[in-house]
Computed example of a mutant assay.
Amino acid sequence: MKKPLQIIILLLFASCGLNTSNVNSIADDSFKLCSDIRYNKLIMDYGPIEGKMIYKKNIHSLLENLLLRKKYLTEISKQDYVNLLKKVQRNKIKPEFFEEFKNELGFNPTNLFPRNSFLSCYGYLFEQLKILDKSDKTTWQYKFCINYNKFEAYGNLNLENNHIIDALNEIPQSKFEKIMYRKIFLDLIFMKVD
């Protein structure tokens, strides 16, 4: 009941005359809500694993922490993620890395790393909620989606193309610091290497 109420409140705020700062804040809140709803559905669909719910809810942070511990990442920054994506494209991450991840978790988390689940939340901001104006091609969200779609059209991480790097670079640094904006890249990395 709480989630639908939040959506209604966000819609009311969105329908009022807002400045850019407020629109961005509402877009962030709506994106987080959308990704939380989609991810909670994944968790519930994945089925119960006794004592592992906390792992399931924090799977992206756990993967990111292992990437840091194994020195595939040295810090959480856009540049480090660019370097990580290039390592993935060049098959520089050993498959044993993901076997270790699965062993640490005690289960196979493949279903918790969906393809495009978080990308659809951008469309949600444009199409359903109309918080962002899709005719405004200057927003970072619009540019991100265009580059991400190009990345998918030109072979994902199977070919070296810079579209995923271009998409990543569209995300403002202040946004990239939030895990919700890094999840899509962690999903890609897991899906490619696993």
Rank of each mutant, 00 (worst) to 15 (best):
M1D: 05
M1C: 11
K2N: 07
L5R: 05
L12D: 05
A14E: 10
C16S: 13
C16G: 07
L18P: 00
T20R: 09
N22T: 05
N24D: 08
N24L: 11
D28A: 03
D29K: 13
S30Y: 08
C34K: 01
K41N: 02
K41R: 06
M44H: 09
P48F: 11
I49C: 13
E50L: 15
K57M: 07
S61Y: 11
N65Q: 15
N65I: 12
R69Y: 11
L73E: 04
E75W: 02
I76F: 13
D80T: 01
V88G: 05
V88M: 12
I93V: 11
P95F: 05
E96A: 13
F101E: 15
K102N: 06
E104D: 13
G106N: 14
G106W: 12
F107R: 14
T110I: 10
N111V: 03
N111L: 12
L112T: 01
F118V: 02
L119G: 02
S120E: 15
Y124P: 02
L125P: 06
E127V: 08
Q128V: 11
Q128E: 07
L132I: 01
L132N: 01
D133M: 12
S135C: 13
S135P: 09
S135D: 15
K137R: 13
I146H: 00
N147A: 11
A153G: 14
Y154H: 14
N161K: 15
N162A: 05
A167E: 00
A167C: 10
N169H: 03
Q173H: 03
S174H: 06
K175F: 05
K183N: 01
K183A: 00
D187V: 08
L188S: 01
I189Y: 10
F190G: 00
M191V: 00
D194S: 11
